[in-house]
Nucleic acid binder design. Sequence first.
DNA 1: AGACTTTTAAATGTCTGACAAATAAAATTT
DNA 2: AAATTTTATTTGTCAGACATTTAAAAGTCT
Lengths: 244, 244
Amino acid sequence: MKVDPSKPTDLSAQIAAAIRDAIVSGALIVDERLPSEAELADQFDVSRPTVREALKRLAAQSLIRTQRGATGGAFVNRLSFEDAYAQQITTSTLLLSMNAVSFDTACEARFALERACAPFAAARRSADHLASMRAEIFRQGQPGLTDEAFCASDVAFHRALVDAAGNPVLSYHLSGAVEAMQPLMNMITFTARSRGVIMALHSRIADALETHQADAAEAALSDLESYTCQLARDVMERRAQGRD
Amino acid sequence: MKVDPSKPTDLSAQIAAAIRDAIVSGALIVDERLPSEAELADQFDVSRPTVREALKRLAAQSLIRTQRGATGGAFVNRLSFEDAYAQQITTSTLLLSMNAVSFDTACEARFALERACAPFAAARRSADHLASMRAEIFRQGQPGLTDEAFCASDVAFHRALVDAAGNPVLSYHLSGAVEAMQPLMNMITFTARSRGVIMALHSRIADALETHQADAAEAALSDLESYTCQLARDVMERRAQGRD
DNA sequence: AGACTTTTAAATGTCTGACAAATAAAATTT
DNA sequence: AAATTTTATTTGTCAGACATTTAAAAGTCT
């Protein structure tokens, strides 16, 4: 293995890319041990710190894990659904927070994807998932709940809805869409009245899934989308008035 | 800024987490310059290589970019849609390739999400998007096309369909779902007959979007899903027979 | 012989110090 | 005033060293 020394800098990026390619292409399989840092340094003809920087890059993407000790080293990591969820959520959250994405656009995407889960959730929802959803609705009605806690419960409700579809790949793709909305939702003040409306819509969704009515669930989700966007619009207006 | 020295190891991970939190929380804003590596080393009370490893972790996630020279340093990076796409695709691809995900499950998720785009695509599709889709259909009919090239064109067709929905957040979420299927699709041998069927379904989708018929597009997508799963099942069977 | 303890070797984690290369600002010269 | 040179700052890279962790090997005792 060699890297291009003509490229001006960033040897560690080149080495990371070379190892990443080996993993993606299947040349390195899960749980296989990479050569030791010293060996890699020899092979790529660079110093150990440079190799280490490359390995840290891969570790940041959960592509490898390292273990100390005699039989230690860097191992190709099986990307678990959990790790993938976490990456998905941070990437999605940052994407929304760092780019001028309108609330409506993000909301449209999120609810469109959730509606896509509805038919499967209606067909396959387990008692457990329904119980989780009901529990979150109950929590949302507790007095003294902060807006942040209300939002967190809202996210938990929707995650349960997504998981009820019984497709882990779908859950993975949706995790970012649902969780990344939380910072945006946190900008909204949820009055007792608006909480009531949302809880009623949540109940409509849970009822629809319980009775296996996909259409009703999708309709309730659409109504929830409209209402959420309306709340956000009200906040914007109030802010604009406050500034003027 | 300080990190917990009681934790046994992985100082670079702790430092990376601290800086990442500062970025996510908004304490560090886009294009803001981080302290120099030497300053960070002082602040966190670690050596410069350790700081560098932390920075490489963040660079791997496109959270920062570095620049050499007098006014250089590490800067908070605006996570572009393009970067987010790329991360999404690699993560999704690895997730599918490293875990025992059935073809049907991945396919179900992908087409469910694509159907979610159909109503928006039917309403908003531009002439450009339609032209892209037609061009890919034409390419798929070219004789002498390898299976890989056919798959690549298939992905391009579906990306155009997703982009036609005119919601960049939706496109971002879908990018992984569509592209990550390509390695799985590459295991299928596309005969002239099956290519014909797929192209006909693609045409049905394009026609439906052209005439703003969301329902017809969704139906065609469902048919395409069924057919794709059937093809995959045939491959499996033929393999199983070959082994016995 | 078998179980327990100690030693040892290999690997990652971290530090120090140094030099190279890039880059923009400051100083100098034309 | 413009062009050139110098300089300072910062990242990129290297070399060598020591600390720490870990499991296997060696040794010891019952």
